[in-house]
Design a protein around this nucleic acid. Structure first.
Lengths: 123, 123
DNA sequence: CAAGTTGAGTTGCAATATGCAAGTTAGCAG
DNA sequence: CTGCTAACTTGCATATTGCAACTCAACTTG
């Protein structure tokens, strides 16, 4: 087990910049998306999502999001195997961000990405 | 002038994933933020923002966002010098995403980032 | 209970992307 | 036409991502 360095470097005191210091990459919000859509997800569920996240990236993201208290194990007592992840309250509060991304993409991305799913909804 | 490769690789047909294919990095949404807050910004305005974007990154982001029609020059006829950028309609439609990031950060990031600006508003 | 299978990661290394400093170019002011 | 400066570009060091292979512990099957 590597002692993971989770030091976030805050680029400024701007809240938006700080949110992007945490979530501003291609994968973190997709992990959150899967949890918003499905409620709980195991490691292999995430790994098998259509975007194809690499397993090392997945592991570091799950660790980072856990250490920031955005996600947690469904059963903290049990071992990793079969022990899914779910959103904490703080993580669930990211939902409106995903909703706005969804709305924007459906309005403004359809013409540059023809096969985009134009009528998806977050349940 | 380098012939810039602007090929976006779409990881899936999911709209949220596609939005992150475009905007999922630490800098793009900060450029948008500056334009949402200030209306127009020149190259040096962006460069001098507190987050300290490197000039090569800034140049590639401005090119990318322009080619995606999220931002544009205020005066398309004139040369670069003093010719600010502004949001297109498509870019301005990103505002609600930034608003949700702001709200989330102010609620949930204050305790892990003490000096965050807790009462900022997007005008 | 030994052997195989599967979930949940690690590790090593190649390919990209980011960060930093310095250099270049083209408008403008005088 | 000379110097100043905004707007980039380039080169190179460092960090992050992506891919494939490997480990390891937890079940499950005979």
């Amino acid at each position: 087990m590597t002692p993971i360095e989770n030091e976030i470097v805050w680029r400024s005191e701007c809240p938006i910049s700080s949110a992007l210091d945490v979530l501003g990459d291609k994968w973190s919000l997709l992990v959150i998306r899967d949890l918003v859509v499905h409620g709980t997800r195991t490691y292999s569920d995430f790994r098998d999502a259509p975007e194809g996240i690499a397993t090392n990236i997945l592991a570091t993201r799950l660790n980072l999001l856990s250490s920031l208290d955005l996600i947690e194990r469904v059963d903290p007592e049990r071992s990793a195997r079969g022990n899914a992840y779910r959103l904490t309250e703080r993580g669930a509060a990211l939902r409106p961000i995903l909703v706005e991304f969804l709305k924007w993409a459906q309005c403004h991305l359809v013409d540059m990405h023809p096969s985009i799913h134009g009528d998806a909804r977050i349940r």
